[in-house]
């Protein structure tokens, strides 16, 4: 069985390699279109333009995927066992967290801002923010129980909802869903990205935490 398996996988790899090598050595893909329209996309970084304007619908759904994963994790209930509960952090971790978290938040802010013209953007910034959250959780910090319910949930869905609401608003003015007027595109993308960064960061940290903190409290 093992041998057959290896043979099959090697055959597959060889076939794929052959297929890739048979591709033309030059191909502009869609880069012609992207550069043509970059001026009216609201940003100068082409990747951000694709993510948040040309193919913004993909990004919108993908925020949905992230939220859905969190819903899925929360629906599984608590998995925490005694060994997983972090004991009191050592002094090194504690101090590191105190230093690093502010730096990470600043870095996230920079990444989010820079995304408009150089590599960077909401997901990168969100990931850094998420890392800050993870560090805080490891250091024993827990979210205030008053914020655990609706406020936490609202912050989680904020990116998705604002994305959808902005997209829908322009539907009312004879445009398609997510069709930004060029003159406002830059501002709108910034607004969406900002809130998305926040939601993504919180969602990633929440994913790390596992169960719904509201249920954990009970």
């Amino acid at each position: 069985m093992r041998l057959l398996l290896m043979a099959l996988i090697i055959a597959m790899a060889a076939g794929l390699a052959y297929a890739i090598l048979s591709l033309p050595a030059e191909s502009a893909g869609l880069s012609v279109y992207t550069t043509e329209n970059i001026a009216i996309s609201g940003v100068t970084n082409p990747v951000t333009a694709v993510l948040l304007n040309y193919r913004a619908y993909d990004t919108f759904l993908e925020l949905g995927v992230l939220l859905l994963a969190l819903l899925g994790v929360w629906s599984l209930g608590s998995t925490a066992t005694a060994s997983q509960r972090p004991s009191a952090p050592g002094p090194v971790l504690d101090n590191l967290a105190r230093v690093l978290v502010p730096i990470l938040i600043v870095v996230a802010g920079y990444l989010f801002w820079a995304g408009a013209y150089i590599p960077g953007g909401a997901f990168q910034a969100g990931a850094v923010l998420g890392a800050a959250g993870v560090l805080l959780i490891l250091a024993g910090w827990r979210i205030n129980h008053r914020l655990v319910g609706l406020p936490l949930r609202i912050s989680l869905v904020l990116g998705l909802v604002v994305f959808a609401v902005v997209g829908t608003l322009f539907m009312l003015t004879d445009r398609q869903f997510l069709e930004f007027p060029p003159q406002y595109a830059g501002v709108l993308i910034l607004l969406i990205e900002g809130l998305a960064t926040l939601s993504i960061g919180i969602a990633l940290a929440a994913l790390f935490l596992g169960a719904d903190p509201e249920e954990d409290d009970n």
Binding site: Y33, N37, R55, Q176
Partner: peptide, 13 residues
């Protein structure tokens, strides 16, 4: 056929 974002294929979805 509905071009999301108003771009239309191949650039948009």
């Amino acid at each position: 056929r509905y071009a999301v974002g108003g771009w239309g294929a191949p650039l948009g979805i």
